[in-house]
Every structure is written in structure tokens, then in C-alpha cells.
Design a protein around this nucleic acid. Structure first.
Lengths: 140, 140
DNA sequence: CTTGACTCTCCCATGATGGAAAGGTTTACG
DNA sequence: CGTAAACCTTTCCATCATGGGAGAGTCAAG
């Protein structure tokens, strides 16, 4: 099948398939005489693996490792689990960072009346408690 | 003060200050005869505002709006709050996406023994159609 | 043969940041 | 005064994953 059909059945764009081939995440496919890429069931399976892993937030570098483990009958599941655990830790860190921002923003937004007056604790917070007041006159 | 000191006292890199000037987030600063950028307290204040907004996860586009609101004595706090609320919604969506990935991964990793044997539910999930969570059962 | 859908490669863009090269300036010290 | 370190300048390139588009070639159906 052509790249378009492979893209449709694997759930990723043709653009990405070419890109993954370019960075070596995929073996270069067979080509027709005219240079069209040709894919089979096995390639689609491979593509779907990548798409699933992307959906779980793995980076392409991690996916590269996952693919080589997948391809290796001698693998130990500990290696796979190590990758997954590292990714979980990474997700936790990112979630915590976003949750921290969210908490700050929610408390600021809660304190903001949201009317037509200009006073706003959100801007006051951004402007910073330390230095001179906001809208300070130039003083150099 | 020079850009290095402005960077140090505002908490962002000199690189970023030049970049922000380049994309118009900052007014171009005064220059010495030799072309060195010169900053005053007001500029540092502005830079700190940007840094703080970045810490809260606002995009540069949103910061651009926040800065113009900050600069506008006629602003209504409702406009500020609207920006903050939109950002909170965005954070919520990102947190939910990451939490979803995390939940899936945790359950898979939990089912993986993590020993030296090759059997691994994590790889099995990535490899196979998984109707329980598969959102797009494509193909015919 | 034409038309339209498909494909090819190559270049550019995003957002936010960093790095490095190649050169000019200022400052501190011997 | 000379020089070396520490600063500054611009410009280009890299990240990560993805998309858009141009310009050209290919294929199938009418």
C-alpha cells in the first residue's frame, strides 16, 4: 500500500511517516519504480506501535528504545518497566509543575473582581512585590 | 546597566532579553555609542513581569496581552481575569491529558513483573489493538 | 489526453530556549 | 601602556514534534 493508506490505517500523517523514516525510527520502506513508498501489514503494525507510544507521551527517543526492546526476543521486561517508570516520573513532574501554576492562578483569579475597574491582583502579583510599585515613574 | 546585569537582576538570560526585544515584547533599549544595550529600573521591572508570567505558564502571546493591559490605566480587571481564566482552562486540559497518560502507564507498569523474562504487558499494549481504550479503531 | 488524486523532495514555520562562532569594547591589573 | 579577561554585538544553528506549501512527477479513471 502507498503512504497515504498506511497513514490512514495507522492513524498518523504521511508527513510523520516520512519524518520517522528520515530520523531512523522506521526502516526505509520498499519503493516502486516511480519511487513511491510501499508498506505492508508489518509496517502498519510498527507505525501503530509508535502512535500508541506517542499517545502515552513517550518521546521519540524513548520510543526508539521501546521499539528495539519490542524487536528483541531476548529483552527483559525489567528494561521495559524501567522506561515506563521513568516516563511516569517525568509525567508526575510535569503534572506537579502545571498544578502549581494552576493553584497560584486560581487563587489570584479568585481575588480579582473581574469588573470594569483597573485594580487587579493578578497584575499586581505579576508586577512583583519586591521592587518599586507598578507603573513607577522613570527613575534612572 | 548592561544587558548582563539586567539579566542577573531580572532573573532571565541575556539571550532571552535580546529575543524578547526582537519579537517586540520589549521596547528596543537605549544603546551606548559602542552599541551596548542600556537598561534602567523600569526595564528591569518590565522584565521581571515577563519572567513571572512565564513562571505561571503564560505563553508569550498571552504575556504580550498582559503587558499591554498592565500598561493601560484604562484597563478593566475583567479583561485580565478573562486571560487568566482561559489559561487556567488550558492548564486543566494539559493536566488532564498528562494524568490520563499517567493512569494508563501506571496500570500497565503495575501489571509488568519487571524481571528478566521478555513477557511484558506494556509492550503488548503498545503493539496490539487494545479495544478497551482504543479511541480510533480505524481500518476495515 | 485530460483531470484529479496521489506522491516525491526540499524548504520553512512553530515556541521558547540555548549554544557557538567571529568580532568589537571595556575594564582591571601588572 | 599593554594585554588578557570579561563583557558585548550579530548571525546562524539546534532542539522537539509537527504542519504547510511549492514545484514536479505518477497513476488511474473518464
Amino acid at each position: 500500500m502507498n503512504i497515504g493508506e498506511a497513514a490512514r490505517t495507522s492513524g498518523m500523517s504521511a508527513k510523520m511517516i516520512r519524518h520517522y523514516e528520515g530520523i531512523g525510527l522506521l526502516r526505509a520502506s520498499a519503493r516502486t519504480l516511480a519511487g513511491y513508498r510501499q508498506y505492508g501489514e508489518r509496517d502498519v503494525h510498527w507505525l501503530r506501535f509508535i502512535r500508541r507510544a506517542r499517545e502515552l507521551g513517550f518521546s521519540l527517543a524513548q520510543i526508539r528504545q521501546l521499539l528495539s526492546l519490542w524487536d528483541d526476543p531476548e529483552r527483559s521486561s525489567a528494561d521495559v518497566k524501567r522506561l515506563a517508570d521513568a516516563h511516569i516520573a517525568d509525567l508526575d513532574a510535569r503534572i506537579a509543575a502545571l498544578a502549581g501554576m494552576r493553584a497560584t492562578l486560581v487563587s489570584l483569579a479568585h481575588a480579582c473582581r473581574g469588573d470594569e475597574r483597573p485594580d487587579c491582583p493578578i497584575l499586581q502579583d505579576l508586577a512583583g512585590p519586591h521592587p518599586a510599585r507598578q507603573r513607577c515613574p522613570s527613575q534612572s
